[in-house]
Design a protein around this nucleic acid. Structure first.
Length: 1118
RNA sequence: GGGCGUGUAGCUCAGUUGGUUAGAGCGCGUCGCUGAUAACGACGAGGUCCCAGAUUCGAGUUCUGGCACGCCCA
């Protein structure tokens, strides 16, 4: 027998019980065992960093990540889910620095790299427990105890192996990267740090003359805001698509070239007329040589030329180059290029280099040292701090007659966030790169095969990013990260890559391992994985294979931690040192999901690495389907922020509303890729809207089943497991669907349609659509099936086939539904399943998560019945609307409603089911009519979708023509002839029945409501009899209300005393006494004068009546 | 400055290939039910679909140009 449902259900409490059950019975492990040998559904976990508290955004990611693996597991796939943790990188170092109260690299070095990385290693687990607790509490099933960890030796070695592949294939190279550089601190800053330090400052803005070599007395007018970069000038850039003017400046007797659109602006600045002499396109200026303002480099390299790739020869520098970033927003339309001090400028250098034969093109010129002071070659300013040199440089320009105009320029410029008087400069640093550009087309090709949700990511954000791919700057001059596994010969500079620690130890003459050994001896608790990290790994050297007597030493850098996470498809298994077999079966992933910010992060690193390493695989894209989650905002629509407290902590949400409420909110309130506003109220709402509604149906079933002794366990026979329809049929009293009543067949049909629809949508990764269908079904189950069938459950005949049908039908609905919703709301579904099967515990799946996802049985689906039921629900709804309009409450019986139908399709079915409408609308009769000319006017409209393509421009004319014709005449003609001819603009159009649509409008004077497929008309006249019956029902309602206020049990019998002088009421009571007594379980119904303080006064129609209700003694004896 | 996205009811959001009454939930209002009861149901009001042009017989939906907001990159 089922256990009674407690009155005050607490979902968080239920969830705790479920969690305990899952833990004790290892349900997750069993769900995997059950699928051993089955086809895989591969899921990759994008590793989070556990050095910060998890917040609601992480809950969303983890909820989505849980949904599809659970679903696919129930669908029969084997979906192992290996957790992972991202542990390297700058954020970890920053956290540790904060604790130590230090900032710069010097301070880290002073503190000691060895203790520093030991702190880093411990710091990454700081919030581990919170993460694990949240993961479990949310119901995210993943193997936490087998998690991959990016600092583990096996993981690092996998990464090394992959880098060695790239190195050996010539894809890993050293080059320059322009970084934001803090000269005083001697370190590069991350973009996040740079973003923190912008200030508004005034810098010099100078217009400088670059005299052209081959055009006499003519100079290019060049603009810059950083005079200190002029000595390092290599090019001048113009936009080839802009128009440039040659103007004559009489005052200095020179011709100047500048953007045509800026002539006026500049003329206004210098306050004199500039006459345009000629105009050309920027394209025509490309290649012209000029003399730079300073000749520190020009004097040796100025005449140097190099061979071009496509033949010919050209000067390597100091000529005009094309650049589309040049605009006419400010300046002169020509820009000075010092590639050392700007990223776009550096790119320009690279594209120039690319035009030359290897080794013949321009080299980077950098006249400033890492300390921000000029190098000795810049003899006039050597040793000067760059900003201090600005003035001197401008003065020199003036002396040389090259300064055309100078002003102050107000703009935002980044400063160091730790020392806010130190300006940052863009500065070239040696860096390691991966030649990803060589794989651009392959990556694009792979990208095209990925299913992105939403779709626009593919050609939008991600596709664009790939299109404009630049080589991956891999190295970081930091401490806590995967060391770059490259050793350099200290004599020849030749290099090789190492794939594992063992390989390193096998090298001839290896030395330096004692540093690690000593550390381990001093502190045996030291994690062994640290031996492949800085500083220990840096001490390991070996004999150079290139130069006898020389040694190989590791380069100092670590790598970008995005490379770590992008390597997870193989590194999580330690491949290829171990895990080859499992890697083969677990690549690529069927499904991954992260938020939008991972587009250029994890999604890119996965695609890039897999494309480069697994070219030979038939399927080198690392994942097939990817849901890109929207960003989550706080309650106020702003970014979530701890300090603003604009969101409630996940743990509090779990305690107040439960994990299911949160999950349902994530899945059912919006598609996952939209921006989500995290609102506590909306999370709370998912309880009454869905979870509680479902629970009420379940509780209704259980409580009645208990009182009626309906006990499936006693009847079910044979092999049971899933309690599918077929298994339920083993019970003798469980009749075939075809033998059950129509409403049972209807809800079972809906149930099977639901299973089919949810399967289709989930297979297409449309979780939002799936939830909408589930919601619709639960609504129909609760507000139509249960409501329409309550009386069947109350029926006193416990053995009647009809009553048993009702029980079996509702039982099946709840069982199947619990399986369908299991991936979404795993807790309540588990509770419902287990309580519905409590007496079958050893004969069926112990957990709903160990069942198969319900398969729809097409034989159970009756789509005609669905349509019919929908229609009758629409009619009932329209009838209520009409009553509302007429201010006739449902308690007042009426003689008749008339339903005018658009189509006769379901007429006979409706006629056979008028009892439902009589009951729902409280009327004595329902009349269906096809020709409702008496009540409505017909308006005939073209069927636009069909006629649009057929008649095109005539459509508006046809529409008004149809409007002029009397609708009912047209319809009759159509019915009689099968078609109708309409003359429009001199043409005759033959209309078929399906080419028109009919709209009915109630005629004035009737109480009617109009829907899509019918009009419902109310007969509003009231007879004495109807009024009396209405009064009786009012009285019943009042008595029931009083019963409730007296807290009577629903089986208690009562005595009722009434007092009223109104004749109508007295007549009504006399007439309907038995009915009233029956409905209210009253033994007696007497007129009396009531003096008791218990007396209640009720409104009945236009009058009032006094009532006294007493519990009947007789009843107490029963 | 560039790329991408978003803009629909008081709020949160749907709206599939263009088709003529633009939907849901919450909130609000009115009413009902009282044997699912610390529940439940019905009905209603509420919309210049950001703006302006264009394409089309027809645009919330397609195109162009704005505006606002967000994210990423510079």
């Amino acid at each position: 027998m089922f256990a009674r449902i407690e009155n005050n259900v607490s979902f968080p409490k239920l969830e705790q019980d479920v969690l305990q059950f899952w833990r004790e019975q290892n349900i997750y492990a069993k769900s995997l065992e059950r699928r051993q040998g089955a086809e895989s559904f591969v899921f990759f976990e994008g590793p989070p960093t556990a050095n910060g508290m998890p917040h609601p955004g992480h809950c969303l990611t983890r909820a989505i990540k849980d949904l599809f693996p659970r679903y696919q597991t129930m669908r029969g796939k084997l979906c192992t889910r290996k957790a992972g943790w991202d542990t390297h990188g700058l954020p970890v170092e920053v956290e540790v620095c904060k604790e130590l109260g230090i900032h710069s690299k010097e301070e880290i070095e002073a503190y000691g790299v060895e203790p520093f990385i030991q702190l880093c290693q411990r710091s990454v687990w700081r919030y581990m427990q919170e993460w694990e607790r949240l993961t479990e509490r949310l119901g995210f099933w993943i193997k936490l105890d087998e998690a991959y960890v990016t600092y583990h030796q096996s993981y690092v070695e996998s990464v090394w192996w992959s880098l060695k592949q790239l190195f050996d294939r010539g894809l890993l190279y050293q080059g320059h990267k322009i970084v934001w550089w803090w000269a005083q601190g001697g370190t590069a800053l991350s973009s996040g740090e740079v973003g923190q330090g912008y200030k508004k400052v005034a810098d010099p803005s100078v217009f400088v003359l670059f005299p052209l070599l081959d055009t006499p007395n003519t100079a290019l007018l060049v603009w810059t805001t950083t005079p200190w970069t002029l000595p390092s000038n290599q090019f001048a850039a113009v936009n080839p698509d802009l128009e440039y003017a040659t103007v004559y400046d009489a005052l200095i007797d020179r011709r100047l070239i500048m953007a045509k659109d800026l002539v006026e602006v500049i003329s206004a600045k210098i306050k004199r007329e500039l006459n345009i002499e000629s105009i050309c396109r920027g394209q025509d200026l490309i290649g012209k040589r000029y003399r730079p303002p300073f000749d520190y480099y020009y004097k040796t390299l100025g005449e140097k030329t190099g061979k071009l790739r496509d033949g010919g020869e050209q000067h390597i520098a100091w000529r005009i180059a094309p650049a589309d970033f040049v605009t006419t927003d400010s300046g002169s339309g020509a820009v000075h290029e010092a590639p050392a001090f700007g990223e776009v400028d550096f790119e320009l250098l690279q594209s120039e280099q690319a035009r030359f034969v290897e080794g013949q093109g321009p080299e980077l010129i950098c006249g400033v040292g890492p300390n921000g002071k000029f190098v000795p070659e810049i003899s006039d300013f050597a040793g000067k701090w760059i900003k201090d040199a600005d003035k001197l440089i401008v003065r020199q320009l003036k002396d040389k007659g090259l300064l055309y105009y100078q002003e102050q320029y107000l703009h935002d410029y980044p400063f160091c966030w730790r020392a806010d008087n130190d300006p940052l400069i863009q500065y070239p640093r040696k860096s390691w790169f991966i030649r990803t550009t060589a794989f651009r087309d392959k990556m694009l090709e792979n990208n095209r095969l990925i299913q992105w949700f939403p779709e626009h990511i593919r050609d939008g954000r991600f596709g664009n990013f790939l299109e404009s791919n630049v080589d991956w700057a891999l190295s970081r001059e930091r401490y806590w990260g995967t060391p770059l596994p490259i050793w350099v010969c200290d004599s020849s500079g030749k290099m090789e890559a190492i794939a594992s620690y063992a390989e390193l130890l096998d090298k001839p003459g290896v030395a330096g391992t004692e540093v690690w050994e000593a550390a381990k001896q001093a502190n045996p608790d030291l994690v062994d994985d640290l031996k492949v990290h800085k500083p220990y790994i840096d001490h390991i050297t070996y004999d150079s294979p290139f130069v006898p007597g020389a040694r190989m030493r590791r380069v100092s850098e670590v790598i970008d931690c995005w490379y770590d996470s992008g390597a997870m498809p193989f590194a999580q298994w330690g491949y290829p040192q171990s895990g080859s077999e499992v890697f083969q079966t677990q690549f690529p992933a069927d499904f991954i999901s992260e938020a939008l910010d991972q587009t250029r992060g994890w999604f890119y690193s996965l695609v890039a690495i897999s494309t480069m390493l697994f070219e030979d695989k038939p399927f080198p894209r690392p994942f097939r389907n990817c849901i890109v989650l929207g960003l989550m905002l706080g309650e106020d629509g702003q970014k979530m922020s701890k300090s603003k407290r604009n969101y409630r902590e996940p743990n509090e949400i779990f305690d107040r509303y439960g994990a299911d409420a949160l999950r349902w909110y994530f899945y059912a309130k919006q598609p996952p890729w939209t921006e989500i506003r995290y609102r506590e109220q909306t999370i709370k709402d998912s309880i009454p809207e869905f979870i509680l509604r479902l629970w009420n149906v379940f509780s209704f079933f259980v409580n009645y089943a208990i009182s009626d002794g309906f006990d499936p366990a006693k009847e079910l026979r044979g092999n049971l497991y899933d309690l599918t329809h077929a298994e339920l049929r083993s019970a003798p009293s469980c009749r075939p669907t075809t033998e059950r009543g129509e409403i049972d067949r209807w809800i079972l049909s809906e149930l099977n349609r639901l299973a089919a629809d949810v399967t289709a949508r989930m297979d297409a990764y449309d979780s939002y659509g799936a939830c909408q269908r589930i919601n619709d079904f639960v609504d129909g189950l609760s507000n139509w099936y249960v409501r329409r069938n309550r009386e069947r459950f109350w029926s006193p005949d416990k053995e009647s086939a009809d009553k048993l049908d009702a029980y079996w039908t509702l039982y099946e609905c709840l069982l199947t539904l619990s399986k369908i919703i299991a991936p979404f709301v795993p807790f309540i579904s588990e509770t419902i399943w287990r309580r519905l099967t409590c007496d079958l515990a050893d004969r069926v799946a112990e957990s709903v998560h160990l069942t198969d996802f319900p398969a729809a049985d097409p034989a159970e689906i009756d789509s005609t019945l669905s349509e019919q039921m929908e229609l009758i629900r629409e009619i009932a709804s329209l009838g209520r609307a009409a009553r509302m309009e007429a201010k006739l409450k449902v308690r007042q019986p009426l003689t008749r409603v008339t339903v005018a139908l658009n189509s006769k399709q379901h007429l006979s079915w409706l006629q056979a089911h008028d009892a439902i409408l009589r009951d729902e609308l409280n009327v004595k009769a329902v009349k269906f009519i096809a020709d409702a000319g008496e009540y409505v006017t017909y308006q005939v409209l073209p069927n636009f979708k069909v006629l649009g393509p057929k008649v095109g421009k005539l459509l508006p004319a046809l529409k008004s023509k149809l409007g002029e014709t009397k609708g009912s005449d047209l319809l009759i003609a159509l019915q009689q002839q099968g078609h109708v001819n309409v003359a429009v603009d001199g043409q005759t159009i033959r209309l078929e029945p399906e080419e028109i649509q009919v709209r009915m409008t109630p005629k004035p004077g009737w109480m009617a409501a109009q829907g899509h497929s019918c009009v419902v008309v109310l007969a509003t006249e009231l007879t004495t009899e109807l009024i009396e019956e209405g009064i009786a029902r009012d009285i019943i309602r009042s008595i029931q209300d009083t019963r409730k206020k007296l807290a009577l049990d629903y089986t208690d019998r009562i005595r009722v005393y009434l007092a009223s002088d109104v004749e109508e009421i007295q007549r009504a009571v006399a007439h309907w006494a038995d009915y009233i007594k029956g409905e209210t379980l009253a033994d007696t119904l007497e007129w009396a004068s009531i003096e008791s303080p218990e007396k209640v006064t009720c409104e009945v129609g236009d009058y009032t009546i006094d009532l006294l209700v007493e519990k009947s003694l007789q009843a107490q004896r029963v």
